[in-house]
Structures are given as structure tokens and as C-alpha cells.
Design a protein around this nucleic acid. Structure first.
Lengths: 240, 240
DNA sequence: TATTATTGTAACAAACTGTTACAATAACAA
DNA sequence: TTGTTATTGTAACAGTTTGTTACAATAATA
């Protein structure tokens, strides 16, 4: 029996039909904000990492497992932000091409060509801690800056936009405890994260005061980088 | 051929399997905040109005149509707030009972006993403008205050909680143009709506100043109610 | 010990919020 | 007409938060 990854795709009977998930995985390294995009084998098609929900697993578990398989990270910040259910959101031609280029039998995977409703989640991680792993059907997975995204298939660009909007709305409430930054970080790194996500700049002093006023930061030792200037303190988020 | 409403339920082939929607329909009349709850025929089971998505209609259209069928309102404020996908969220025994009590053949409707993922929306309407219409399978649909809800089936109480949380978070951003209030309303009615939704009281003068500062209200003529006191102005939301 | 680049805070002003006070009504009664 | 009562619309003041500028406190290096 051929167990090569190209010999068999997801089996219809294992999954809930018509239901998919997509994930917008935001990565930050103290300087740049990027997202993970995968490219399907020989098709020139770019897409968000996604998957299907097994009949015997919860939606949340399916997404957690899916994102873990791409990033290797088990304990990440995941937030559901929207479910996409337009009629025009599935492109059976593209899916057919992906199956074909992966040597998968189209008849056996016909259920994948049907209409899907997709529940979208975003994740936040520090991309320097991650070695992304491609989808079984994809041959590459790469970090892309938001302003240098390749054209994404189906409605995936709309999904990214909505993810960014939601992240911006939630930033003040939910940046805490998330993994976008290393455990300990400087105020400048935190400000960079805010600025890259919000797409605007902040005054250093006001930003510092606002962050400290939240009482959600713990101050640690100073960070000596070798620069000829006063060393900044390191901070971490309080676990609530 | 029997066309009685009890003779046939939704047909499997018309709908996307495993996908449902539920709606939390908030109503306000200037004084009280309520939601619509329906009771299934002879079962003692209470539930949120919901439905399924046809294969050839968008998710949004399905929900809009569903809510319209219960309320008669075509043009309402609808917002998707969460998708519920836990394993324990479907109770096939309850569904079986509902089918049975409606004289529907269980075999023919077996797909309804399977696992469903539900996309939840909330709607905002002025409940004095509405004559709720029961589900084909339900025998009553009634307005209930949030603090006097009957026990709801499955995870519907959790859905209501999450709807209320989301509504509270969105109130300042999205109260505008919604139909919770009549087109023209007094500042007191607006304050009542805010207080009932947020579950807290506000100082009259500060509330009035805050609302006027948003620049989203248009002032109209005064409202003479016959009360022995200065008459309040009427306001409406600016259409943006 | 001076120089340079940053960081941490203080100080002041401007904007926003909370609270109190009070004048301006509508309806009604004397 | 003129009080009386209940409620509404604003102004005034205080307290709090936010924006801006200024400046002292370092780390490394010359």
C-alpha cells in the first residue's frame, strides 16, 4: 500500500462535509509583522493554512491541531474572528488543480470540490521561534509581510483583512500573555509591535506611560546590548 | 398530498449538512430589553430561533431570511458574533423528540440528528413593531427578559451570553442606525437602551454630553407628552 | 572625563469625564 | 395670570487622563 503523501488526501468519511477552517498566523520578531502563506505544489496558488474538522473532534481542537502542524507550537494564542459563507467563496477549478498536481484521484476527493463554509481564526506567535512546516498538499510555506503578500486564492485576502481589523480592535484587551513577543522584551519592542499592527506611530513617552498604567507589565533586569546609551529595562506580561 | 406543516420537515438534499445558524434577536421598546425564544410543540424544549443553510444561498442570506420569517422585518441589523463547534453541542435525543412531536418521520430526517456546527448572529429590533411568528416546528415564540429566560436547550444559554457580551463591546461603535429604538427617540429612551444593555446606570448629564459629542445624532422637534415639565427633544441617528 | 545615543520621568498644557447647580420649560391648578 | 411640579438642557468647576516638551540618567567608547 502506498503511504506516500501524494497517494491519498483527506477521506470524506472522516470529516464534517461543507466545513473548513482557515488560519491567519501572525508572526512578529520585535521588528516586522508577517503572516504565514503556503503555496500549492506546481499551481502558483497561494493560500492561508487551513483544514477540515473531523467528525469526532471539536472545531477548536481541529484548528489548534491544524495550526500546530504548520508551526510546531502547541500552546498558542488562537482567536476565532469570523465565519465566511458566501456562495462565491469556493473555487472548484483551483481545488481540482491542487488535487491533480498532487496526484490525487479527483473522483475519490470530489467532496473537496463542493461548497465550504470556513471558520477563520488568527494566531499570534514570535516567528523566530518557529520552523513552518508545509501542508501535505503544499510545497512551501513562507512568512510574508502584509504589504508584500502574493495574490491569495478565493476570498483569502478578505480573510486577512478581517483578521487584521479584529486584531487591531482587540489589541489593548488581548495583547497580554500572547506570544508575539519573546517572554521578556523592551518597551521599544512592545511599541514596535503596536505600531506594526496598528499601522500608525506613537509618541514614545505617552506610549510608555500608557503601557505602565495598565499594570499588566512586570519590570525585570536591564538589557545591555553594547550600545553607547542608557540600557532599557526588560518587561514581561503579568499572567492573570 | 398532505401539505400540512406537520407532514414534512427540511429535506436533506436542499441543505448543507452539519451547518446550522442560531439567532439572538434583541428587542427593545424604550424600556425593556428582551429576546425571542421559541418553544417546540409539546416538548417543553425552549430554543433560539435558528435554521439551516440552503446549498444555493449564502450564509448571510439564510440568516436574514430566517430572522425575517420569525419577525417579519426585512431590513434589520444583523451581526455575526461567534461560531459554536463543540462536540457536546448537539442533543440528538431532543431533536428526535421535536421531530416525533411534530409527526415527522425520524428516518427521513436522520440528518437532523447528526452533529451541527452553528454560526450565531444577533439582531436588533424595536419589539413593538413586531409580531413574532413561530417556527414550523414550534408552537410558540415569545419575548423574554434576559433575567427571566426559561432553561434553553443545548448550548443556547451560552450563545445568549456571548451575544450579550459582543453587543456590549460593540454598543458605542454600532448602536447607530440600528433598529432597537424607533426612528426618533428621546435622550431618556437612548439612555434606557444603554443601561438595559450594559446592565449599569449612567449619570444623565454626562450621558447626554457624551452622546451629543459623538456627532452621530440629529436633533428634531420636541416631544410633547402631556407631562407637566419641559418637553425633551427628539433625536435620530445620522445615516453614515 | 567628555561624547553620543537612548531611556526613564517629571512638568505643564490640553482634552475629556464626573458632579453639582441652575435656568428653561410644559402642563395644571388656584 | 401666576404659582407649582417634574423634567430637560447647559454651564461651571473639579478631577482625571492624554499629549508634548524638557531634561536628567545612564552605557559604551574615545
Amino acid at each position: 500500500m502506498n503511504t506516500d503523501k501524494h497517494s491519498q488526501g483527506p477521506k470524506k468519511e472522516d470529516y464534517l462535509s461543507h466545513i473548513a477552517f482557515d488560519s491567519v498566523i501572525f508572526g512578529f520578531n520585535g521588528k516586522q509583522l508577517k503572516i504565514l502563506v503556503l503555496e500549492y505544489q506546481n499551481t502558483g496558488l497561494f493560500a492561508l493554512p487551513g483544514g477540515f474538522v473531523k467528525r469526532n473532534e471539536s472545531l477548536k481542537d481541529a484548528v489548534t491541531k491544524g495550526v500546530m502542524e504548520r508551526t510546531g507550537i502547541e500552546d498558542l494564542y488562537l482567536e476565532q474572528f469570523h465565519t465566511f459563507g458566501n456562495l462565491d467563496r469556493f473555487d472548484s477549478k483551483a481545488m481540482e488543480r491542487i488535487l491533480e498536481m498532487n496526484g490525487l484521484d479527483i473522483k475519490a476527493h470530489e467532496w473537496l470540490l463542493d461548497r465550504f463554509i470556513s471558520i477563520a481564526y488568527y494566531a499570534l506567535i514570535n516567528f523566530e521561534e518557529v520552523n513552518p512546516i508545509p501542508d501535505p498538499l503544499a510545497d512551501s510555506i513562507e512568512w510574508y509581510s502584509l504589504d508584500e503578500l502574493p495574490p491569495l486564492m478565493m476570498d483569502h485576502e478578505e480573510i486577512v483583512q478581517k483578521a487584521l481589523e479584529t486584531l487591531r480592535e482587540n489589541l489593548d484587551k488581548k495583547l497580554l500573555g500572547m506570544n508575539l513577543l519573546p517572554t521578556k522584551f523592551t518597551m521599544k519592542e512592545l511599541q514596535n509591535a503596536y505600531e506594526k499592527i496598528m499601522g500608525e506611530t506613537f509618541k514614545r513617552t505617552a506610549f510608555q506611560r500608557r503601557m505602565l498604567a495598565t499594570k499588566n507589565l512586570v519590570r525585570h533586569e536591564k538589557l545591555f546590548t553594547g550600545g553607547a546609551h542608557r540600557a532599557p529595562y526588560l518587561y514581561s506580561f503579568k499572567i492573570k
